[in-house]
Amino acid sequence: MTAIRYALAGVAALALAGTAHAQDFRPKEKGLLMLNVRVTDVTSDANDPIKTAAGAATGLNVDVKNDVMPTIGLSYFLTDNVAVEVIAGTTKHEIKAKGPGVDVAVHDTWVLPPVVALQYHFAPAAKVSPYVGAGVNYMIFYSGKDKNGFTVDLDDGFGLALQAGVDVAVQGPWSANLDVKKVFFKTDANINNGALKSSVHLDPWVISAGFGYKF
Rank of each mutant, 00 (worst) to 15 (best):
N192V: 03
K197A: 09
N193Q: 12
P173H: 11
V183I: 13
K197V: 10
K186N: 11
V170Q: 14
S198Y: 02
D179W: 03
H201S: 14
S198M: 10
A169C: 13
L196G: 04
W174M: 15
D167A: 14
D179C: 06
A195S: 13
I191H: 00
Q163M: 08
Q163P: 02
N190C: 03
S175V: 01
F185H: 11
N190I: 02
D179A: 05
W174C: 09
G194T: 06
D188W: 00
G194L: 02
I191V: 11
L178T: 09
W174T: 14
S175F: 09
G194K: 04
F185C: 05
L196Y: 09
G194H: 05
A176C: 11
G159D: 05
N193P: 08
Q163A: 08
F158L: 10
L178V: 12
A169L: 08
G157S: 04
G165T: 13
D179F: 09
F185L: 06
F184G: 01
H201C: 04
K181E: 12
T187W: 06
D156V: 01
K181I: 09
S175G: 13
D179I: 01
T187N: 05
A161V: 15
G159K: 02
D156R: 01
T187P: 04
F185E: 05
Q171M: 15
V183G: 02
D179K: 08
A176T: 08
G159A: 02
I191Y: 00
F184P: 01
V166G: 07
L178N: 10
N177D: 14
A195E: 09
Q163V: 06
D155E: 07
D179H: 05
D188R: 03
L178R: 06
F185Y: 14
G194N: 01
V180H: 11
D156Q: 00
G159R: 04
N192G: 01
G157F: 00
A169F: 12
N193L: 03
K181A: 12
G159V: 04
N190T: 11
Q171R: 15
A189L: 09
F184C: 04
L196D: 08
K181R: 15
L160P: 06
F185A: 04
D155G: 04
V168N: 06
Q171N: 15
V170I: 15
G172N: 13
T187A: 07
L178I: 14
D156Y: 03
A161L: 06
D188E: 10
L160E: 09
L160M: 13
A176R: 04
K197R: 07
P173D: 14
F158N: 07
A161T: 14
W174I: 15
D156C: 03
L196A: 05
Q163K: 07
V168H: 10
A176H: 05
G159F: 02
V168S: 08
T187G: 03
S198T: 11
G157E: 01
A161K: 07
V200E: 02
A195I: 02
V170E: 14
S198G: 07
V168E: 08
G165V: 10
S199Y: 01
Q163E: 14
K182M: 07
L196W: 02
K181H: 12
S199N: 12
D179M: 13
P173M: 11
K197G: 00
S175P: 11
A169S: 15
A176Y: 09
A169H: 13
T187H: 03
F184A: 00
A164G: 12
L178W: 01
G157W: 03
A195L: 09
G194P: 00
G194V: 10
D155A: 05
